[in-house]
Amino acid sequence: MKKFCFAVLSAVMLFGFAHTSFAEDMSPKDIMIKNFFVNRVKDSKSESAMTLINESGQKRERKSTGVSKLQKNGIDNMRLIKFISPADVKGTSNLMIEHSDGDDDIWIYLPALKKVRRLVSSNKGDSFVGSDFSYADVIGYKVQDFEHKITGSENVDGVDCYVIESVPANNKVRQDNGLSKRKSWMRKDNFVTVKGENYDLSGELYKVFKASDIQFVDKENNKWQPMTIEMTNVQVNHKTIVHFSNYKVNTGIDEGYFSQRNLERE
C-alpha cells in the first residue's frame, strides 16, 4: 500500500511538473513541485567552500567536494559529501540516500574512529556539520510533507517572485524539522528559491535563507543552481555562506559511487 501511494504520488508529481510548465494559474503545490525539481539534475559534481561567521565576525571555513545523482525514480537524490579541510574534519564524509516513500538513509564516516555511523534521519532539523543549514536544508524538503499557500508576489533583487507559506502537514513533520512554518520566495521565471524564512516551533523567525549567482546548469533539462547560498540564524546572529565551484552536471557518475566503499575512502 505504501509503495502504491508512493507510485501514485510520483506520477502526480511528474505529471504535475510536465503539465504545469505551461500553466499560468498554478496552485501553490504545483509551484513547489516545480521548485523541488528545478535543481534536481541527473548527476552533479562540485566543490564548495562553506564559511561560518559568528556574531563577532570570526570566520571558520570548511571545504568539501560533493557528488549527487538522481535515483531511477527521478525524484530522490543520492549525495556523497567529503570534507577536505580544515584538518580536524578532513576525511569526514556524509552519504545521504533520499527515500520519498520513507525515512532517508544518512551515514557519517568519522576518520578518527575509522567508523561509519548511521544517523537518525528523522532529526532533519539537526545542524549539518555545525553549519546553519539543517540536514533538511541540504537534502531538500519533501513537497508532500507541507501544506502550501500563495501569500502574494514580491520583487526580490529585480525579479518577480511567488511568496509561498508552507506549514508542516502533521506534527511529526513539525517535530522532525523543528519548524512551525517556512516562507519561500520563488522566482516566477525559473522557480528557484531566492529567499526563505524558517520559523521555530514557537513561531519565532529562526533562520533566513538567500540564494544568488543562479546559473542555468542544464539547458536541455531546464535545471538551475544557485552558486552561492546563505543561511543566517537570526536568533543567535550566526551565518553560513556556501560557494559552489566547478559545478558540473550529467557527468555520468555511476550509481555504485554512493556506497560505503566510497564513504570510507579518505
Partner: peptide
C-alpha cells in the same frame, strides 16, 4: 578515544557485491 588504536600489519580484501 580515537587516539588509542594502532594498526596491525595485515592483508584485507573487500569484495563489493553491491553498493550496500
Amino acid at each position: 578515544e580515537g587516539d588509542r588504536k594502532t594498526g596491525v600489519a595485515s592483508l584485507k580484501y573487500d569484495y563489493y557485491f553491491s553498493p550496500e
